[in-house]
Simulated assay, not measured.
Amino acid sequence: MRIRVTGLPVECEAVVDVLVATLDVVEVSEPHPNRGRSDLVRVYVTVSTAALMARPTGGVT
C-alpha cells in the first residue's frame, strides 16, 4: 500500500515517524515539492499490509 503524506516538511517528517513506529514501512520517498508557490511537500510511504490482513478482524481494529 502506498500512502501520500502532504504538509509542511516538519509535519510530514512527524507523520512518517508515527507511521514507521506503527506500521511495517518498506520505503519512504524523498520530499517532493508541491506545484506552484507552495511551502508544502509530498512524501510517499510504502507499507506492507501482510501483517494487517492476517489479523482476525481483517485489518480493522
Rank of each mutant, 00 (worst) to 15 (best):
D17S: 10
E13P: 09
S38L: 11
V60C: 11
L19V: 06
V18F: 05
S38F: 11
R4A: 14
V60W: 11
T57G: 00
D24I: 05
R42H: 15
V15T: 12
R55C: 02
M53Q: 13
L19G: 07
L19D: 06
T22F: 01
V28E: 08
A51S: 15
S48M: 03
E11I: 01
H32C: 00
V16L: 14
G59N: 04
L8T: 10
V20A: 08
L8H: 05
R42I: 14
V5A: 04
I3V: 11
V16F: 09
D24T: 14
S29H: 01
S48N: 15
S38P: 13
L52G: 15
V25A: 07
C12Q: 03
V28C: 05
A50E: 12
A14H: 02
G7L: 09
N34F: 00
T57F: 00
T46V: 14
R35S: 02
V5T: 09
C12H: 03
D39Q: 15
V43F: 04
V45T: 14
V20P: 05
V26K: 11
T22V: 02
S48K: 05
T57S: 07
C12R: 01
V43P: 09
P31T: 06
E13G: 13
P33R: 11
P33G: 08
A54G: 03
A51W: 04
A21F: 03
T57C: 01
V15P: 03
M53C: 02
T61A: 10
V25F: 02
P9M: 09
S48A: 14
T57P: 00
M1C: 04
A54L: 07
E11A: 05
R42Q: 12
V60N: 11
G36V: 04
A50G: 01
M53S: 12
V5K: 02
G36D: 07
G59S: 03
P56E: 13
S38V: 12
V28P: 08
A54S: 13
M53T: 06
A51V: 14
T46P: 02
A51Y: 02
E30L: 14
R37S: 11
L23P: 09
A54R: 15
L23R: 12
R35C: 00
Y44A: 15
P9W: 02
V5S: 05
L23D: 08
L19C: 06
G58E: 05
E27C: 08
V41M: 01
I3N: 07
Y44S: 13
G59Q: 04
L8I: 03
G58M: 08
V16Y: 09
T49F: 01
I3C: 06
Y44D: 13
V41W: 01
D39L: 10
V20Q: 12
T22L: 09
N34V: 04
G7R: 09
S48Y: 03
P9S: 07
T22C: 09
V26G: 06
L40P: 02
I3L: 11
R4S: 11
Y44I: 15
T61L: 01
R35Y: 00
D39N: 15
R35H: 01
R42T: 15
L19N: 08
A54P: 04
E11H: 04
L19S: 05
G59P: 05
G36T: 07
A14D: 07
V26L: 15
L23W: 10
V26D: 10
R4M: 13
L19T: 07
I3D: 09
L40F: 13
A14K: 03
M1S: 12
V18N: 13
